[in-house]
Design a protein around this nucleic acid. Structure first.
Lengths: 120, 120
DNA sequence: TCCTTGAATAGATGTCTGTCGAAACAGGAT
DNA sequence: ATCCTGTTTCGACAGACATCTATTCAAGGA
């Protein structure tokens, strides 16, 4: 549980969608992030974690918010983790997740012209 | 070809992901947009259209940029159209597409805390 | 009118993905 | 050591999706 840092969105980051055509590689990288967020459950998970007090939430909190089994939630968390959007850390019995705000920020910047400057 | 205006992203728009948990409905709407952008080809199409001179591109320009058949490109354009991200207009022989920048902007705003203000 | 070209639709197919139940793993408590 | 609870992994299955070929529709030009 240590190699899922923001490997993505580092080079495919800073050129807004509308400034010049994405290369195939950039598009492939970005699409992974969007795909991770293309599921309603994962979006709510992301939002639950991001908006939770202290910036982190334990899996137990998350599971209760859905009519889904534990394994399904765990699967979605894994997708978010492997996309670099969140990280999970085990502390004792529970596992706590927190978001990587930089990744969200970069993604946000890609969508709007001049969005890259907002990161500086 | 007229009812695919920004039906989405109008009410699920303005509360950043990290401020409060998304409702199931908001997540469902947003996920449609992200799903539309979760394909590399569609991302490149979006970028090609958005960055094209005059803010619009005809299908013929787009098709040449990929090793894909016409119907496949047409399919992807339809997905983007039905998600409200682009609109298409026929002028004579060719069909021209352009993006809806507001939708991209709202999406961008959802991702970052305080992003909603950037729209005002 | 007919033919040609650009674009969309229809149908088919192989792959990916969201979900589940069952089982395995990790820590703490008894 | 043994159980109990929280979390992840495994295997399976139904539905969704990207792509293709063949066909159809739209608009001009001969």
């Amino acid at each position: 549980m240590s190699k899922q840092l923001p490997l993505v969105a580092m080079d495919a980051c800073c050129s807004p969608l509308a400034r010049e055509p994405l290369t195939a590689d950039q598009a492939a990288e970005l699409s992974k992030l969007f795909k991770a967020m293309s599921d309603p459950v994962r979006l709510r998970l992301l939002s639950l974690i991001a908006s939770h007090a202290g910036g982190e939430a334990c899996v137990c909190d998350l599971t209760d918010a859905f009519d889904l089994t534990g394994p399904t939630i765990s699967h979605h968390l894994k997708v978010l983790r492997e996309s670099g959007l969140i990280t999970g850390e085990r502390r004792g019995t529970w596992v706590y997740y927190r978001v990587h705000p930089e990744v969200l920020a970069r993604l946000s910047a890609v969508l709007v012209p001049g969005g890259a400057e907002a990161l500086a």
